[in-house]
């Protein structure tokens, strides 16, 4: 299935892109996709921060299973205000 991955803040700089379409196995969880991305992109260093993520614009658990056309966003701890 195909999913969209979006990157924001320092994670975007680490990933070297703003967004990509990924082909992932059916039944993939958020955590398994993040591991996949980290393996593919050695530049995606997440040393400074816990990585935050959202599925279809909502915070979610790492165990959440994705569906076709879902949007996964990866970003550092928020710092608005």
């Amino acid at each position: 299935m195909k999913i969209t991955v979006k990157y924001f803040g320092s994670v975007k700089d680490d990933a070297g892109l703003e967004m990509e379409i990924m082909e992932v196995p059916e039944g993939s969880s958020v955590s398994s996709i993040i591991s996949m991305i980290k393996e593919e992109r050695s530049g995606l260093s997440l040393r400074k921060n816990p990585l935050m993520f959202a599925l279809n614009q909502n915070f979610c658990d790492g165990n959440r299973v994705l569906a076709d056309n879902d949007e996964l966003a990866l970003f550092p701890v928020v710092s608005g205000g």
């Binding site: 924001f8 959202a54 928020v78 608005g80």
Partner: peptide, 13 residues
């Protein structure tokens, strides 16, 4: 509201 924005809203600087 401002405390929650700082904790939960996806904005970075």
């Amino acid at each position: 509201i401002i405390d929650s924005i700082k904790k939960k809203v996806p904005i970075w600087k």
